[in-house]
Design a protein around this nucleic acid. Structure first.
Lengths: 182, 182
DNA sequence: TCAAAGTGTGAATGATGGTTCACTTCTTTA
DNA sequence: TAAAGAAGTGAACCATCATTCACACTTTGA
């Protein structure tokens, strides 16, 4: 349901109906809507974080630029494949309790990037910078490019969008992107 | 009221009370809550866009890097001075009608950056890139760093946050930031 | 001066949607 | 098999708000 209409399109009555169960039954298993959807967000977000971390880990030993690229591409492809879900997980207005889950996972994305960037700075591959600040800004940039209101919601070639985003991220950490299409 | 508690903390009853007027009277002047707050957002956002554009324009003739820096610093200082308002204007969940206003102004921020970046690319100062994609990502990065959930909400020195953000933006457009504090 | 138009009022209306609860099935366990 | 507990039910409850409207007052303009 989150993939289809997001949090707002999922009132408890509909949740129950989809589950083939009465409203009261839902409350036998979850104390409140907040708790229920906090769990939904937790599971769904974990999948995404794992995917991105695996993407970055698959390039272990490669340059920081390669690893950032791998992580961003993995994340971006999944986000574009299910943009509604990505938006729900990253940006859609939700309950405070659910928002807390979101914050936790946004931190996770950030942490994945912080590790890679800090490694790159330590090894001298990347110029001096505050890895935390860079990672925070990158998360914002990626989110906006993928699901933000300025994102090319349709029309634009998804692969081109991803390539531009990757180039941006590479430059932002202080390297030259491989090839650029103006 | 938006600066204090945001959109949700501004029911029409409270709006009327603050205005020293009855609820019905508010509806003599605005057809709906959406319209009223669309106007509020429009006025407030226009102030911010104007400020940022002026910041960037004040450095007319300077390098693209200088102009981006001026715009970002202007925007960031104002955002940090009234973070609640900045969040409300940039990211807080609102009505669809109000969201439309927001989208319009996010585009305006983007456009300010697109102009500067495109100039820089044309003049050869900046490396080849898609100015639109870069500007979109920058808006996301700036938003996240200033009012996003990953932003250092307290504790961190605001000026240090701004400096890190500026460095990020300079690198992201393809230049070397002046000096860097790791 | 006196309609007509403009403005003010705030309790009542209506829609939405989360949550409860008295009651009815199952399922487990001794 | 029979009590105890778990799970199911959905109409009713409650809270929140945007919005309306019948009536009163004030200003405008001829």
């Amino acid at each position: 349901m989150i993939s289809e209409g997001g949090y707002v399109a999922a009132p408890m009555a509909t949740v129950a109906e989809r589950a083939g169960v009465a409203v009261g039954s839902v409350y036998r298993h979850f104390p409140s809507k907040s708790d229920l959807f906090a769990e939904v967000f937790r599971e769904a977000s974990q999948r995404e974080v794992d995917a991105m971390a695996e993407g970055a880990a698959a390039t272990k030993g490669a340059s920081a630029a390669e690893r950032v690229k791998a992580g961003v591409v993995t994340f971006a492809r999944r986000a574009l494949a299910n943009r509604r879900l990505a938006w729900a997980l990253l940006a859609e207005p939700v309950d405070p309790a659910v928002e807390a889950e979101r914050l936790h996972f946004r931190h996770s994305y950030r942490d994945v990037l912080v590790d890679v960037i800090a490694d790159g700075v330590r090894s001298g591959e990347l110029p001096g910078q505050d890895p935390g600040a860079t990672a925070t800004a990158l998360v914002g940039a990626i989110g906006e490019a993928m699901v933000g209101p300025l994102s090319p919601t349709n029309g634009a070639d998804p692969e081109a969008t991803i390539e531009s985003l990757v180039n941006f991220c590479i430059r932002a950490i202080g390297k030259e992107p491989a090839h650029v299409n103006a």
